[in-house]
Simulated assay, not measured.
Amino acid sequence: MTHIYLDNAATTPMAKPVIDTMMAQMQQDFGNPSSTHWFGREAHTVMDAAHATLAKSIGAKPTEIVLTSGATEANNTAIMQTAHKRASLGKHIITTAIEHPSVLKPMAALEQEGFNVTYLPVDENGEISLADFDAALDDDTILVSIMLGNNEVGSRQPIAEIGARLADHQAWFHTDATQAYGLLDIDVNALKVDMLSVSAHKINGPKGIGFLYRREGINFPSFLKGGEQETKRRAGTENPPAVAGFAEAVRLITPQEKADRQAKYYGFKKQIIDSLTGAGIDFKVNGPLKADALNHVLNLWFPGVSTYALQTNLDLAGFAISGGSACTAGSMEPSHVLTAMYGADSPRIAESIRISFGAFTTVMDIAQFIDALEKIVTRLRSKTH
C-alpha cells in the first residue's frame, strides 16, 4: 500500500539537504560551542552563522534570535517570563480563544497565579475583531500574545494592525508564528512585534529546535536555569547539528518559494473542494477560503460522519490526515478552535478533519486522496441511513 502524508501542519518530513547538513555537522564538528578550544570554536562558528540566517529570515538582528528547543519553549518563555518580569506594571494579558495549547496552558497557569487573561473570541472564519481587541486593551495590560496563523483552520490575525495599536502602549507584543513561518513573508519591524516564536520541524527541518525572537530592550531572566548559553538568555548545551539543519531548512525557502507554495496549496484546496462539490458530497469548509490565508491547511466538515471514523478509514486506506492539533490528538477533548468558532453544541466539532499540505505533496497525491475520501464518506454515510 502507498502511504500519502497529508498532515504537514503537525510536522513535516525533513528535506534531504537538511539531513545532509546535519550528518556532516555530527561527523565533523561535534564540539561544545561553549568550549574555548578549537573544537568548540568550530561549533560556535556554526551557531553564529545560523543566528544570522534565522535573523535575516524575519528582518531581525542576529543578537535578537534566541535558539530554543522549539515553539513550545519559545511560547512558554515569552509568556511566563514577561508576566513575572512585568507584574508590577499590571496583571492583564490579552490572547485569543484559538491559540495553540503551548500558549493557552501557560495562560491558564498564570490565571492560577492571579493574572487576568482576556481570551478574544473569533468569528466563523476563525478571525478576531479589532473592536474586541480595542475594548480589551487597558492601562493594566502588560502582554498581548496572538498567533499569526492558526494551525487547525489556517486563519490569519491582524498582527500588523495590533502592533500599530501597541506602539505607544506599555504591553509587550508576542506572536506565535509557527504555522506561518516559511509560508508568509514576515518582517518583525513591519509587524511591530516584540517577540515571535518559530519551530523548525514545520518547515522540513529537524524536531527539537526553534527560536524566540526578542527585540532589543525586551529583557527578562532565562526561563531555563543553568548555564549562560545564548548570551545568558537560554541555559542548556546547544545542539549544533539541529541548529545547522534549521538554518539549511530556512535557506531552502526563498521568497519566491514561499509564494509558490502558497499558490500551490491554494490550488490543492480548490482541487479538493471542486471535486467534492462536483461529486455531490455534502460538506462545508471550516474557516476562511481566501488566497491569503495559510493555504497549507484545509479543515472540512462532513455532516453525519464522525471525525474518528473518517480519520481511521483514511488511515487504513493509506492517507495520513488529522482531526485537529497534533498536540491534543491523544486526548478526547473536542477541538477548542472549532468550539470557539461555532459553539460547543455544533456538530462540526465531532465531524471535521484537517488536511494539511507540504513541500512534497503532489497533484497526484491529492487526486488519489479525493478518490478515497469520496468513497469513504459515501460508505460511512450509507451505514448511518
Rank of each mutant, 00 (worst) to 15 (best):
I94T: 07
S331W: 03
L212I: 07
A247Y: 02
T254K: 07
M26V: 15
K56P: 04
L148Q: 04
A15R: 02
M195F: 13
V377N: 02
Y5M: 04
K270E: 06
G227N: 08
L276S: 08
P62L: 10
N313D: 13
P334W: 00
A326P: 10
A109R: 01
P334F: 01
L184M: 06
P33N: 07
A249S: 15
I58Q: 01
K105A: 09
I209W: 02
N313F: 07
A97D: 01
E127R: 06
R261K: 11
L191I: 11
I366L: 07
W38S: 10
D123G: 11
P241A: 03
K383I: 03
Y266K: 04
A9E: 11
D274I: 13
I321S: 08
H336S: 02
F357E: 02
F268K: 01
P240S: 05
M195W: 08
P221L: 05
G149W: 14
P17W: 11
D194G: 15
T362L: 12
E42Q: 11
G324Q: 06
I349E: 00
R251M: 05
N75E: 00
S352T: 07
A329S: 12
G70S: 03
D29Y: 13
V305T: 14
E42T: 10
V153H: 07
A10I: 07
P13R: 09
L310H: 08
T96K: 01
G126R: 05
T328N: 01
A190S: 11
I142N: 02
S335D: 06
G245W: 12
F369C: 07
